[in-house]
Design a protein around this nucleic acid. Structure first.
Lengths: 86, 86
DNA sequence: CCCTGCTGTAGCCTAATGTCTGTAGAGGTT
DNA sequence: AACCTCTACAGACATTAGGCTACAGCAGGG
């Protein structure tokens, strides 16, 4: 599982729980609807501005969107935890 | 003040307080030395993987690196707070 | 004085993000 | 049936992140 796959899961979870469509979310944070779709399908890796926009539009925090992803400096690799099965 | 300017301030503050050089930090998180320099001079806007790498290498969190930057969905603009003067 | 460590900065390159348009399918409602 | 909403997905495009090399400056220490 890659960092963007975990981000995708987090984003979709937060968005659906907020009851917002991809298109509404895109409008809220000035992102194109296809970009939101790609992010939720782990097709893209968001930049800082994108993460902060999404967090603000969904009234959540960047930590929650990045939850489960960390970096192990000594091992020089990511540590991506599997999301809790809904 | 732009989001990346605020990120630059946050990054430099955390790095210097950790007593790490740009080059050491770059090695810890597999980033080039010049990239760390650019980020601290607000010349670049980091991606998610970059932010998480930096946070992991500096033993901090993404929230701290993104501190002071938020998105106002209704106003369709960022809200960047000035960092506390050291 | 020379040497070393740290940082700034310019340039070039590749790969990626983000924008936009359009098409298509699934599911629900009337 | 037709209609609507949401989403997936393609292709094309401009902009940018990040890697790399190289050179310069500036401090401190021998």
């Amino acid at each position: 599982m890659t960092p963007q796959e975990r981000f995708a899961v987090n984003l979709r979870k937060v968005r659906t729980e907020a009851g917002v469509s991809q298109e509404e979310l895109g409008h809220l944070c000035d992102l194109h609807r296809t970009e939101v779709s790609l992010l939720e399908r782990a097709g893209r890796e968001p930049r800082m501005a994108t993460i902060i926009k999404l967090a603000g539009a969904l009234n959540t925090s960047v930590s929650i969107l990045c939850e489960g992803v960390s970096w192990l400096p000594k091992a020089h690799r990511f540590d991506v935890k599997r999301p809790p099965r809904s």
